[in-house]
Design a binder for these strands. Sequence first.
DNA 1: CACCCAGCGATTGCCAACAATCCTGCCGAC
DNA 2: GTCGGCAGGATTGTTGGCAATCGCTGGGTG
Lengths: 216, 216
Amino acid sequence: MGSPDQQTAERVLRQAISRGDMPPGYRLVEAEMVALIGVSRSAVRLAIDALVAEGLVERIRNKGARVRVVSTEEAIAITECRVPLEGLLARKAAERITDAEAERLQAHLGTMTAAVDSGDLQKYSELIRQLYALVADAARHPIAADLVGRLQAQLVRHQFQLSLRPGRPRVSLGGLTDLVRAIVDRDPERAEAAASDHLRGVITALSEPSPSGGAA
Amino acid sequence: MGSPDQQTAERVLRQAISRGDMPPGYRLVEAEMVALIGVSRSAVRLAIDALVAEGLVERIRNKGARVRVVSTEEAIAITECRVPLEGLLARKAAERITDAEAERLQAHLGTMTAAVDSGDLQKYSELIRQLYALVADAARHPIAADLVGRLQAQLVRHQFQLSLRPGRPRVSLGGLTDLVRAIVDRDPERAEAAASDHLRGVITALSEPSPSGGAA
DNA sequence: CACCCAGCGATTGCCAACAATCCTGCCGAC
DNA sequence: GTCGGCAGGATTGTTGGCAATCGCTGGGTG
């Protein structure tokens, strides 16, 4: 979008936020970001503007920017939007996926199964995101992919919290296995249904109270 | 978002673009915008940044900003995303609409019918947008409403082009009448189906070659 | 003791000038 | 006559500094 410096700042901040190094509510002081990233204040400022536009960061006039706090209600609303959009992507992917992509998808599913078996939840959470990215690529629908990507970026924290619940990864993996199968079978209807079902399950899980700790 | 000046610039530009005063491809020269709007260059610059983030404007480094040209293919892809999102909004609206809102919706439908009867297509096109806004309000789903609003903003030109086709407004009005009926009847299923059907019709119409002139 | 308010450091917001880049028109060479 | 390239003007991008605002601290007062 902007200068290389701005892109750098954007990348660093986005990663720091999604990795949790800068948790929701964290104050983004411009001078600190300048020192951290090593670019000019203008670049930092523009990068923050971009993240505000994406909904990852909130800015209050004269009071600075903070990493946006996404409540459980908002997380549900965001996922409600994702339900049909991921369905759309899954359907398009089933229609358009190449053999090479299909193989890659199945291999990825294997990696995910291994991660669940070994109990590496951090990794599994990241692999889920990559799976969605693979489906979005295969769908060749940049607009839906962009929308879904932005929505998902706001949910990283909730998704990770979700994967911490006992039994949840197994359920999740089952749904995603169905999704991958439907896509590699080139069955658009089944793929769309699998994607929607899976995310509806996410909504249900989000609606239930978290076993440990509150919504934050 | 930003200073009042920036908001002013954003509002003026957005309106100019959606009204067609600045057609797709139009070059947004910063100095001109400063003279036109009467705010500082920084404010214009930030406003343009915001519009770029919304997808209304395209910026090429060192070459300035232009009103984004949305091809027919992109318009279809955008509408494909709108199909299920408007469906979601329609369903939520049917669940949550108040009596006052329902009356307002029906009154609006009356205005639309009158506009079609009188052949005022410009007005009808605008009324359609307002109808969607009313539905979005009633749905109380700010996230979906925001997504749909941004998508729709990119389509104003195509939607107007569409309404110029002979017979199209009648078809459109019929579909929207069904939608309004389902919502005021508090029938979520039917509302969702009506919204989706209507937009699928839009996709079909967009796919057919335009009778006069090309895709632009 | 609690409350209020003035002063101060920290932080953000804005502007004007400067630097970098691009487009246009013109000149010369082949 | 056409192509290459080189100023000159126009436009965008960036930097540094200044103004505005905020939150906090400390002193004064009821």
